[in-house]
Computed example of a mutant assay.
Amino acid sequence: MPYRETEKMRLRKAAARQRIAECTYQCVAQGGFRNAKITRIAQLAGVATGTIYRHFESKEDLFAEIFRLATQREIDKVTEALAAPGNTNERLENALRQFAERALKGPVMAWSLIAEPVDPKVEEERLAYRKAYADLFEQAIREGIEEGCIPDQNARQSSTCLVGAIAESLVGPLSPTQTGQAASDETYNNVPLVDTIIRFCIQGLTGIRR
């Protein structure tokens, strides 16, 4: 008679997989993908290293899943901001502020998502991540054009430029060297940086100086 997995066993396996994912997320948030070692993840999760490979085919598959998990959290926050009350320009400004402020508050994870050198499987997820943001901004720009608060333009191209501009503007401030210096400077203030990013992006979309 063939072996049939019991419901209890399925739940135990699901719980173990979830624990591995959570511990991997913790490691990445603390030191990036480069410093998320399988031995450390196994230790935190309370499992043998071989157990990890029963749930994930490879380290790259594990990291790709963590990347999807982390980016979905950020995309959800931007989606909420774009769904808030107000005209399109106000909603776009809120979404851009949400993106930048969350990145600067969690610089290690943000650097890992935006710029850290990663394996090809994770890089594929990064491209999907950027496209998801572009899709959200494209829809908002189209709504702004219909409202008349954004001039007629190629919404798809503009949304891609928007994602590129905000991501690139954060690469320097999020780099490990820069964040290490900022952490030692109690007077460091991110507000001017965030305001500058938003001003540039909104002015680029609307042509209106702020």
Rank of each mutant, 00 (worst) to 15 (best):
K105I: 12
R209N: 09
A70V: 00
N189P: 04
R10N: 04
T6I: 09
P120G: 05
Q18E: 14
A21I: 15
V191W: 08
T88F: 01
V171H: 03
L205C: 07
A128K: 12
V171E: 02
E5D: 00
E60I: 10
Q181W: 08
I41D: 00
R102N: 13
Q72M: 12
N87M: 04
R12T: 02
A15K: 09
E57K: 15
G172W: 11
G50H: 10
R54G: 10
R209D: 07
D195K: 15
V163M: 10
A103H: 03
C149R: 06
I202N: 03
I145R: 02
I198D: 00
I52H: 04
F200C: 12
I198F: 07
Y3M: 08
G32E: 04
E57M: 12
D185Q: 09
P151F: 05
M1S: 11
N87D: 10
A81C: 08
N89Q: 13
V194Y: 05
F99T: 05
P173H: 02
A110Q: 04
N87Q: 07
R17V: 10
E80Q: 14
E5G: 01
S159L: 07
K13W: 02
I41S: 03
E186G: 01
A134P: 00
Y53G: 08
G86Q: 07
R19I: 07
V194A: 06
N189C: 14
R142L: 15
E101I: 15
A29Y: 00
E22M: 07
V78Y: 01
T160C: 04
E124H: 09
F200V: 14
G148V: 00
Q98K: 12
P120M: 06
I166L: 13
S169C: 08
Q153Y: 00
R12G: 11
T6Q: 04
E125C: 14
C23S: 03
M109F: 02
G144N: 03
T187S: 14
T24M: 13
A167P: 00
L62H: 01
Q26E: 11
L162S: 09
L69P: 00
L170C: 06
P85C: 04
E124C: 11
E116Q: 10
H55Y: 15
V191M: 13
R102W: 07
R17M: 10
G204E: 03
T51M: 12
E186A: 15
S175M: 10
N190Y: 13
I208L: 13
A128N: 06
G207Q: 05
A110I: 13
A95L: 06
V78C: 10
S175Q: 04
A110T: 02
P107T: 05
Q139R: 14
A155I: 09
K121Q: 10
E123Q: 14
R156G: 13
I150C: 02
S169F: 11
Q30I: 03
E186Y: 08
T187W: 11
Q72E: 11
I66A: 06
I141H: 05
P176S: 09
I114R: 02
S159I: 12
P120T: 05
H55L: 12
R34G: 15
V118T: 13
K77F: 10
A132R: 12
G86L: 07
E57F: 10
P151K: 05
K8G: 08
T179N: 00
L44R: 05
A14F: 01
E74Y: 04
Y133R: 13
L11M: 13
R91F: 04
G164L: 14
V108N: 01
L69F: 04
Y53P: 05
